[in-house]
Design a protein around this nucleic acid. Structure first.
Lengths: 132, 132
DNA sequence: TTTAAATATGTTATATTATAACAAAGCGTA
DNA sequence: TACGCTTTGTTATAATATAACATATTTAAA
């Protein structure tokens, strides 16, 4: 039997909690450092939890930064469509939740006829604050 | 004065050539291994060349794989808009060149009013071959 | 043409990110 | 209970990337 979709193990809860509390994407080793007081001592423990949380759609990985953020979209249980905006200056990362965009990308089909079941989109620019 | 846009230094040429010849995205250390006979001996030499080639739009980085591919689009001198399709099974990576898509994304604007000057999109799925 | 600035290169060391491999504990259930 | 499965703990190491500094080369101004 596979793990129930909304059950999180102890380590998974600990890791999720710290990512949810953070204002910015967290790196794996900064997570590791933060949770050492809670008994998580080694990288594999963190990476296992991260992998699981990603599969459950609870968090996303910002590929261009090797960092992890909590999913803001409550209904997101499987993480197959992600879009982020990233400020090149302050590094702020925001998850884009735009039905039109996701519909457009979900239906996108290229000339090869390949059909996609997942995408990740990262936009870069200057956020409002940094643009001034 | 900045380097002329179509001039490549020796190391940059060596690295570009090997990426262009490859059928798949290459990892930095596999590039390093391949070019050691040509006198490039250490990681920083490879990473410098890669950085430069990316800035010039000659190659792109596949962020989800930490691998590098040559840009197929001849007119691409600045790499600010990239889209790839990636087969989860055979790992084949293809650069998507679709004017409608790039136009759509270039003009995309989210609710925060942030304006983007760059994006990277990675689609995942099964290619035609692997779908069978 | 000398000189200064910028660019490119070479080199060593190390930082950062991620996984392999194996042992042991905990849990559900036949 | 005893078996299978998942999670956890642990050590070691692989893979990716950059810091820091020395040297050489090119460029372009004085």
């Amino acid at each position: 039997m596979t793990q129930k979709i909304d059950f999180l193990s102890k380590n998974q809860q600990i890791v999720l909690e710290i990512i949810e509390k953070a204002k910015e994407p967290l790196k794996a080793y900064s997570i590791l450092f933060s949770v050492q007081k809670k008994g998580i001592k080694a990288p594999p423990q963190v990476y296992r939890a991260l992998d699981r949380l990603i599969k459950l759609g609870k968090i996303h990985k910002i590929e261009s930064k090797n960092a992890f953020v909590a999913c803001k979209n409550d209904s997101c249980t499987i993480s197959n469509a992600t879009a982020f905006s990233i400020c090149d200056s302050c590094e702020m990362v925001t998850e884009i939740s735009n039905p039109k965009l996701s519909k457009y990308l979900a239906n996108f089909q290229d000339e090869t006829g390949m059909r996609y079941n997942k995408y990740n989109l990262e936009f870069f620019g200057l956020c409002k604050k940094c643009k001034k």
